[in-house]
Structures are given as structure tokens and as C-alpha cells.
């Protein structure tokens, strides 16, 4: 998706995150697990937009959301 805007933030709902590691599978340069096996963002520009969409879609508990600054501001 060349030219599509990139998210300005990625929201991880820690209460929802079950530590499945699927986001890391699809976007390994963006996500990692902290020492509670919860997802954290290590580099928001680490992966392609497609990879981020895959991570969000694959998350088994819907814990991830891409945030675009222009939205609702």
C-alpha cells in the first residue's frame, strides 16, 4: 500500500493481551514480549503496513489497534 498513511501509535490493551505471540510472528521488528509475556511496541516503524495489519488481524483477543493522529482529533 504505497502512500497509505502509517499509524502514529499502536495501542496494546494489556488486559486483553494473552501473550500469544502472533503479533511478533507477523511484525517481529515492531512487537516484542515484556517480562509478563505481554506485547509491547519496540519500533513503530519496524515493519511494513501490511505486516502491521496482519498482526492486528491475527491477534486472537483483539488487543491491538493502530492509531492515526488525524483521527478524531
Amino acid at each position: 500500500m504505497p502512500g497509505a498513511p502509517r499509524p502514529t501509535a499502536i495501542h496494546v490493551d494489556r488486559a486483553q493481551c494473552m501473550g500469544s505471540g502472533m503479533c511478533i510472528m507477523y511484525a517481529a521488528n515492531t512487537f516484542a514480549h515484556d517480562d509478563e509475556t505481554k506485547a509491547v511496541v519496540i519500533d513503530i516503524d519496524g515493519d511494513s503496513l501490511e505486516a502491521l495489519h496482519n498482526a492486528v488481524e491475527a491477534c486472537p483477543t483483539g488487543a491491538l489497534a493502530l492509531v492515526y493522529e488525524s483521527e478524531g482529533v
Partner: peptide, 11 residues
């Protein structure tokens, strides 16, 4: 699942 998940993560 939280008890066993840490042993099965990608890392």
C-alpha cells in the same frame, strides 16, 4: 494459559 504461555512464545 498465562501460566504456560511464557514457555511457548516466539522468543
Amino acid at each position: 494459559r498465562a501460566l504456560v504461555q511464557p514457555s511457548f512464545g516466539p522468543a
